[in-house]
């Protein structure tokens, strides 16, 4: 009996120690550690509207970002968040609090990002969020901060094109605009939905799907990297991305939009793009970022996901 008591005590102690260690461990929260920053330090602070009161009180942003979507939101070799979206979020921390560390990141997936925002776990989501009519009824969008185009990734030997998708299996990420578009417009195709873009690439490589329909920036990176895969010439669903904000959270919307307008005026998005896209691909994407003379608009009133080619 005594020995058993000792075993119990040891187990409880071990559990408690793990719990305490976990809470104290730096790895528990994705800390905003050193990472390449694209945005230069501006000596003069821009005039921005007042921060939302809870963000101001907390003295840092809580932002949902992708962790599986290079080069927008991913985990770098040292285990830190990085990418285009992450650096936009870090720029918000600098603009709000003067330090790029004043932000805690939460990893979100395509299907979990809107629920994560709506349940108040984060202040905003900067997570490759394409504007759609259905989403804009659930949450508010900031002004656009990127514009993506849909492309098809296929094996080199494949003859699949946008016009010949009947009977084929199309893979994309769950909750992506391409999933809705496929179920609306390609009723003769099979739709396979997975939780991360990498799993979708694997599905094409392993023959479980004929093509991966997705954002150009991600696919171009894959196609240049992988000698067995290529992009078809088709381009579709050119719709800008916005930052997701809870419905009616006007204070946050006002601040975020002012910050984005400021970054656009200073042409900061190009610098962030250059810091994240491979040098030889930057040229292809210069038109995808907001610039002083490069404006985007959401297709408000049009349900793009049900307009078929």
């Amino acid at each position: 009996m005594k020995r058993i008591t000792i075993v119990v005590a040891a187990l409880v102690l071990a559990a408690a120690a793990f719990a305490a260690w976990g809470t104290a461990a730096p790895g528990g929260k994705v800390a905003a550690l050193a990472g390449p920053t694209a945005a230069p330090k501006k000596p003069a602070k821009p005039k921005l509207p007042a921060l939302p009161s809870d963000v101001k009180k907390r003295k840092k942003w809580l932002i949902g970002v992708k962790c599986d979507f290079a080069p927008f939101g991913f985990i770098d070799v040292r285990g830190n968040n990085d990418g285009y979206d992450v650096q936009v979020a870090r720029r918000f921390a600098t603009l709000a609090f003067g330090s790029k560390k004043k932000v805690d990141f939460t990893c979100v997936t395509t299907p979990s990002r809107i629920p994560t925002l709506m349940s108040r776990r984060v202040d905003i989501i900067v997570s490759t969020l394409t504007w759609t009519q259905a989403r804009s009824e659930q949450i508010d969008f900031s002004i656009p901060y990127y514009s993506a185009t849909g492309r098809l990734l296929v094996p080199n030997s494949s003859a699949v094109r946008i016009g010949s998708l009947g009977g084929k299996t199309i893979v994309t990420t769950r909750g992506a605009i391409y999933a809705t578009w496929t179920s609306n417009c390609f009723k003769n195709s099979t739709l396979l939905q997975v939780d991360s873009p990498a799993l979708a690439v694997a599905a094409v490589k392993d023959g479980r799907a004929d093509t991966f329909m997705f954002d150009d920036a991600f696919l171009l990176g894959v196609a240049t990297q992988d000698r067995d895969l290529r992009l078809t010439g088709d381009k579709f669903l050119n719709v800008p991305w916005g930052i997701g904000i809870r419905k009616g959270d006007t204070a946050t919307a006002r601040w975020v939009n002012a910050a984005l307008r400021y970054m656009k005026k200073k042409d900061e998005f190009v610098k962030i793009l250059k810091a994240n896209a491979p040098a030889r691909l930057v040229g292809d994407f210069l038109d995808n970022v907001p610039r002083p003379k490069n404006n985007f608009a959401y297709p408000v009133g049009k349900d793009v996901a049900s307009i078929c080619p």
């Binding site: 962790c67 991913f74 979990s112 994560t116």
Partner: peptide, 16 residues
């Protein structure tokens, strides 16, 4: 649901 526990860190590494 997006927790970066052991399996997720393995998957993020595979992706990277």
């Amino acid at each position: 649901i997006g927790v970066t526990e052991l399996l997720a860190t393995g998957q993020r590494s595979i992706e990277r």
